[in-house]
Every structure is written in C-alpha cells, then in structure tokens.
C-alpha cells in the first residue's frame, strides 16, 4: 500500500474526528487501538484476511471495541477494516494521530513505560519534553513491560531513552 493511500485514509479519519468534535479523546482511543493491534499479530492477520467476509471482520472489530471506545472511534476502525485496509490499520491510525496532533500544532510523543503514567506525570512529562525539544507535544503512553523500568520517548525520528532495558543492553554490549 502506498504512503499516499495511507495518508488519504488518515486524512479521512481526521476529518471525521474533527466533525465529531472531541479530537483529543478520539485521538487517544485510536492510538490505543493501534497499540493493541501492534501487540497482536493474530488480530492483525484476521483483520487483513480477505478470505473472511468484510462484514465478519467488521463484526470482530465492533465486538472488541464495544464499550471500550466511543462509537465514532469504533465506526472509523470498522470503516477502514470494511474497506479492506485492515492490514494497514496501524499505519493509517498512526498517520491520523500525527495529522490530528499537527492540526492542534502539537507533536506526538510516543512514550513507552512499564507501568501506566498518572495524568500529572503525563503533564509534567509533556512540559519537560516541550522544554527539551521546543515542540508542543501530546503524550501517548504505551504500557510495555519489556521496558522494565524508566521511559522511552519517541518524537518523530528523535528518541530519548531512559529505560532499564536499554541500560541492561548497554551493559551486555560493554561485555
């Protein structure tokens, strides 16, 4: 799938989210869906499998997200899967999140942590990242136990790594 198609779908998603009004909340939910898909190969394969009828795949999405996300979010994801783009859903959502943040003049800071961050921690982290990078950022936290401890932040191509996993890897390389 070309980057142009991904961008077109992302643009469509952002347009729908803007029309619904709650841009940040929908953005967070879409990001959470993308992280869930990124962590499950089986789910990605099922949603990308064209041998499964589109209605069946859409039903799977709706069953999974029902009660977990806003109806607009579920409808957007179902629309993409129904269009046969389930295999590119993660890339489309990431592009849409970045585009949505861009519309708010913000950069997306993808933060990986072993435990969930409190709102206060996310706010202070956003301030610290803004101070460090000079960009107004919106923090998207991904709970990743492989980080072990500390945080790993990626803003675009820039990575600020303070995780215990990276320290251990550095120790291994030092051997």
């Amino acid at each position: 799938m070309s980057a142009e198609v991904v961008s077109s779908y992302a643009e469509a998603l952002v347009a729908v989210v803007q029309a619904e009004g709650d841009l940040a909340a929908t953005e967070d939910e879409l990001f959470a869906v993308a992280q869930a898909l990124a962590g499950s190969d089986e789910l990605r394969e099922v949603l990308a499998d064209r041998r499964i009828p589109a209605a069946r795949r859409q039903q799977i999405v709706e069953d999974l997200l029902e009660g977990q996300a806003a109806e607009a979010t579920v409808a957007l994801v179902s629309m993409v899967v129904g269009a046969g783009r389930g295999g590119d859903l993660v890339r489309i959502i990431e592009a849409a999140v970045e585009r949505s943040a861009g519309l708010r003049n913000k950069a997306v800071a993808e933060v990986r942590s072993a435990i969930a961050l409190s709102d206060d921690q996310q706010r202070r982290l956003a301030e610290a990242l803004q101070q460090a990078t000079g960009k107004d950022v919106t923090v998207k936290v991904i709970v990743d136990p492989t980080v072990m401890g500390g945080l790993v932040t990626r803003i675009g191509d820039e990575v600020i790594d303070g995780s215990v996993r990276t320290r251990i890897n550095q120790l291994r390389e030092a051997f």
Binding site: S113, A114, I115, L117, Q121, R124, L125, E127, A128, L129, Q131, A132, M148, G149, G150, L151, T153, I160, G162, V164
Partner: peptide, 18 residues
C-alpha cells in the same frame, strides 16, 4: 523494580528531560 522504584525512575526521567 517495585512500584515505588518505577515511579522514582519515571520522575528521574522527567527531571532529566526537563
């Protein structure tokens, strides 16, 4: 790495970045 240590590491990271 208990919860307190995790929080301490996160706070330390935020301080370092800031």
């Amino acid at each position: 790495l208990d919860h307190d240590t995790q929080v301490q590491l996160i706070e330390s990271y935020i301080d370092d970045v800031g």
